[in-house]
Design a protein around this nucleic acid. Sequence first.
DNA 1: ACCCGACGTTAGCGTCCGCTAACACGTGTT
DNA 2: AACACGTGTTAGCGGACGCTAACGTCGGGT
Lengths: 189, 189
Amino acid sequence: MSTRREQILAAAAELFARHGFHGVGIDEIGAAVGVSGPALYRHFRSKDAMLGEMLTSISEVLLTGGLDRRERTEDPAKLLGELIAFQVDFALDNPSLITVQERNLGNLTDPDRRRVRALQRRYVEVWVQAVRDTAPDLDEPTARAAAHAVFGLINSTPHSRHLGRDGMATMLREMAAAALAGAGGETRR
Amino acid sequence: MSTRREQILAAAAELFARHGFHGVGIDEIGAAVGVSGPALYRHFRSKDAMLGEMLTSISEVLLTGGLDRRERTEDPAKLLGELIAFQVDFALDNPSLITVQERNLGNLTDPDRRRVRALQRRYVEVWVQAVRDTAPDLDEPTARAAAHAVFGLINSTPHSRHLGRDGMATMLREMAAAALAGAGGETRR
DNA sequence: ACCCGACGTTAGCGTCCGCTAACACGTGTT
DNA sequence: AACACGTGTTAGCGGACGCTAACGTCGGGT
């Protein structure tokens, strides 16, 4: 629909990523898209609603991306590789969204946070299943912890831009794959 | 020295980690240590100063920990393993400090941020050198990017507590080592 | 006995911030 | 011509926040 909403969300995401949710004022977000201040309330009900819509849509994109790939790929090893590539591409192409999702989940309203958490959990489950299909010796909690660790690895991207986009992508894919392969070890609590 | 300062810093760290720097008020920090509000100004010059001291001391602890280990260990592979174990232990034992350092660097005053950044860069250089000593085929930017990625992996700990503390530690060590070994590119799943 | 420094309290200041109110303007439909 | 509607503006309210001021209490050194 309106380009304006997306434009506002993109600007807000960048500002939230840089200064934190509470560190950004309505006026700054408006200024970033060329209008000033309260004009934003023609498009969003509140500042909270901006963050809510932002994080919800990210989580939905990730989840449907994961579900799509699981549906299309039946070879477990190939699926895991595609999940990795998907997450790497998303992180490299949407650094501020990734940053906001990692840092500002706690600033959501309770209902929004519940929604986002639910979506995230389903996305993680896609990963957990894929991991365990390629490494059946891992129990479920270990697989889940390993998945979270790999998210941390991939999502660290916004904070280190030293390589080019493609060099970064291949390196992250290889490191993620190796890390997951190495999670097997003799891990036991 | 005064237990009080450290007590305040610990409480503030937990609150900053949960709600973000601007999401926490002076009164809340005071309440968390049993005094209320402006009493904190007997111990710190400002709220900014609390964050500044917090992040500076973390960075110093990490840097000296890294330098110590480099001094004591001459075998490159062993050194890298010890750096990994050191970072893993620190992240597992100080989850809120790690979270604050990752999320709230941008909320520091300019001079504080410069100080912290300088310390962090020196710590990263310890890692880069250790990585390149065990994998000489990596150029420096790649080694640096790989180090940052491994920090992301290890520091993701606070957000996933599924395994016990020791199970988590061994798994993270193995994943980190595997990820670094896989950063070269010759390791395919 | 006295004072002083450490540490705490409450009251209140100035400012910022999210949001609403009231109004203006351009466009498309009737 | 009249109107509704989408989108923007400025003014301003109410509350929160960081911080200071002024004052109280208490324990240790002289």
